[in-house]
Every structure is written in structure tokens, then in C-alpha cells.
Design a protein around this nucleic acid. Structure first.
Lengths: 180, 180
DNA sequence: GTCTATATCTCGATAGAC
DNA sequence: GTCTATCGAGATATAGAC
């Protein structure tokens, strides 16, 4: 880490936003540079290729995901509830980078696919360890994934449907958690 | 309806497959034409623009989704179980077109976003009507959406994790269904 | 209905001035 | 460290032969 130069940060954030809002095709070097307020040449000084940009974004996602995982592991309410609670779209950095990496994965970027699969596997492990029953754990995890799915979707339907209902949903999680 | 010409079908299927497997950016007119076994000119006779192609694919998805919805409504096991059962990736036409429309939605195609939102809303309505408790219905629907999310993902992690576990998952659905 | 040829534009990347 | 200028490849779409 050690504090990356300012321009690098701006570029990465712009790339993340373009991926998330307009999709992988729209996230061209030119568009990214413009959104970050630098020139194409300036961008290519920091990231010598488009692939390098994607790698940096994925690395960033992995950092954020690791932080979230540690928090989930030690959450007072338990990993299961914490996972579902943090899966609703809340505009966090995690939400943004998850959606961006998701776009790359759907463009068949292997590193992005691997990063998402690792995150999913780690989440499931923690929920399994807490809940005991594997199938209840899977069901809980899928509720969270469903929420993540909606959080990566453009449009606002899911926001209107789920935004205000985290607590009642957590009550359903408790039903699945308790006993098998 | 009324039996579209053969070439139209081939083109639409090729477009669907390219979107699903390689992403929206890779699904170029040239690649689609090649995959469908026609020339660029031939493709553009049937679909005068890329937008027209996308519209046709979305219309196709809406047909398939309507059929699935009717089946879900009258399923003997009930809409909730039927929804979750059919949400696991099973390589059906519905899976394929869902994934393809999902790629378009993530490329900020408004019609694709609307089509997916309509489908989600219709599914949730049926599950709500059966289950009674709105939050249990949402939880069940999210389990299905989680499975759909995984079915649209490239890579094989979810296949290995969920493929053999539909029945135990349906048992979890039953737990959520029964009583509030 | 389907093809080839081609026009026009935009992409990612390089070169070199400052 | 950031810019402008430019190249070659590949994108959508048109024109017109068959």
C-alpha cells in the first residue's frame, strides 16, 4: 500500500464508477481518463495497459473484501446476520467494487471470476461454521447473494423492494439459523 | 411469433451464447455473424442494427419468462418451491436468455433492465400470494435470486457448490414457508 | 436473402514534447 | 508526471452485386 499517488486513486475510482454505471464496454481508456480528469497519456503512465488497470481494480477489491471478511468473522451478531445485513445495497465502497468486479467477471475476465469465487467461498465457510447445518448455511448465504445480485443491478426496483426491510429479513435468517 | 425465418433464429441463438459466454463487448456484429454462420451483410438484413438485435433478444426472453411464470403459477409443489427449483443452473433456454439479458442490463441497456425488473416483480408476487408472510416470501425469492446470480456467473464454483443440493435447499424453503 | 467491399469512427497503445 | 499527436486494429453500418 504505502499511499499511492493521487492520480492513481482518481483513475481507479473513475474506472470503478464507469464499470458499475455504464458497463464494461463503456469503460474505455478515453472515458476513464476523461472521468478522472487526466489525459489518455497520463492514464497510461500509471497503468501501462487496460489489463493492468483491471488487475489493480481487482487487487483493490480483494483488500476491501478481506477487511469485510474479518469484520464478518468477529461480528457480535454472528457472521450469518452480518453477511445478510451488509449485502443490502448501501452505497459502500465494497458495494461499488463488488459491482465493478462483477462487470469484469461477466466480460469473462479470469482474475475477476477467481476473486469473486474466493470471496463467495470464504463467506460460505464462515456462515457454515456458525450455523452448523450446511443446507441452512447455504440458504442464508443465497439470501445474501440474492441481495448482492440486486445491488449490482442498474435500475431502482430492488432498492424500493428491499431497502427498508433488512430487519424483517434478518428475522428470517434467524429462523434458518435456529436448529435443523 | 408465426415461425421466424431460420437464419433469424440462428443469429439470435448465437448472440445469446456470445453474450453469456464472452460478455457484451465480445458480442460484436462480426462475431455474431460468424457464430451464426452468416455474413455481416446477411445479419444486417435480418437485424438492421445492433439495437434491433438486442430488442429481439429481450422480446424472446420475455416470451420464455412468461411461459415459465405460467408454469410456476400452476406448479403442483407451489410457486415458491418451483421458483427455487428452476433457479439452479440447469442449462435450460430460460437460464441462457436470462444470463444474456443480464449482460445487456449490466451494459446499462434500459429495456433489458426493465425486462428483468418485471420478471423479478412477477416472481415475487406469486411467492407472496402463496406464502402469506411478505418477509418469508422475500427470503425465499432471494434464495432463488442468489441461485440465478450464480447461474449467470462464468466459472464453475457455484456448480460444484450447489448443483447436487436442490432438495435440501427446498427443505429450507419449506421451513420459511411454514408459519410466520 | 445473402454476399463482398468499403466508409467512418473509436479503441488501445506508442512516441515524443514539455 | 502529464500532455498532444498519431498509428493499426477492429467496431457499426452502408452500397450495391448476385
Amino acid at each position: 500500500m504505502t499511499r499511492p499517488p493521487h492520480a492513481r486513486e482518481k483513475v481507479l475510482d473513475a474506472y470503478c464508477r464507469l464499470l458499475r454505471e455504464d458497463g464494461e464496454r463503456a469503460a474505455t481508456m478515453e472515458a476513464i481518463a476523461a472521468a478522472a480528469g487526466v489525459s489518455k497519456g497520463g492514464l497510461l503512465y500509471h497503468f501501462p495497459s487496460k489489463e493492468a488497470l483491471a488487475e489493480a481494480l481487482i487487487a483493490r477489491f480483494e483488500e476491501i473484501a478481506a477487511l469485510g471478511l474479518a469484520e464478518m468473522e468477529h461480528a457480535e451478531e454472528g457472521p450469518a446476520r452480518n453477511f445478510v445485513r451488509t449485502s443490502v445495497h448501501s452505497g459502500t465502497e465494497m458495494d461499488h467494487y463488488f459491482a465493478a468486479v462483477h462487470r469484469l467477471a461477466q466480460a469473462a475476465n479470469e482474475a475477476a471470476i477467481t476473486a469473486l469465487e474466493s470471496a463467495h467461498a470464504a463467506w460460505l465457510d464462515l456462515i457454515r461454521a456458525e450455523v452448523g447445518d450446511d443446507h441452512a448455511a447455504e440458504a442464508i448465504m443465497l439470501i445474501g447473494e440474492g441481495l448482492y445480485y440486486h445491488s449490482t443491478m442498474p435500475g431502482s426496483w430492488s432498492r424500493g423492494t428491499f431497502a427498508a426491510t433488512v430487519e424483517p429479513l434478518l428475522a428470517q435468517v434467524d429462523r434458518l439459523r435456529s436448529g435443523a
